[in-house]
């Protein structure tokens, strides 16, 4: 089983966007990559305090995922075939897209 606790490449601050794009949403999105190649099979999970499950999405063919979260700190966990399990901490703010790149 491969576990990577430091695979999160969240850029500081993410991208602030106009109301046309995110409006009142607090968006956390990004991609999962293995050696720079998108991981198209797997799942991204958003967890709250105490690992409380909030949401989960399957990764897109480009390794992409997106959550419309409440503002705050979240744990992002990625599961993929082969026992891959990677996680990092992300924050979400209203009117803001937090972009995360997860390496597994």
């Amino acid at each position: 089983m491969s576990t990577d606790q430091s695979g999160c490449g969240a850029p500081a601050g993410g991208v602030t966007i106009t109301k046309d794009a995110a409006g009142k949403e607090a968006i956390v999105e990004g991609h999962v990559l293995r050696d720079g190649v998108p991981v198209g099979s797997g799942y991204a999970r958003l967890l709250g305090t105490g690992d409380e499950f909030v949401a989960e999405v399957p990764l897109g063919a480009d390794g992409g995922f997106r959550f419309f979260a409440a503002p705050g700190e979240w744990t992002l966990r990625v599961l993929a075939p082969g026992g891959v399990r990677s996680e990092c901490t992300v924050s979400a703010d209203i009117g803001h897209i937090t972009t995360v790149e997860v390496a597994v």
């Binding site: 949401a55 959550f67 419309f68």
Partner: peptide, 8 residues
């Protein structure tokens, strides 16, 4: 108002 992977 909705799960966090869906628009609110």
């Amino acid at each position: 108002l909705a799960p966090a992977h869906l628009p609110q």
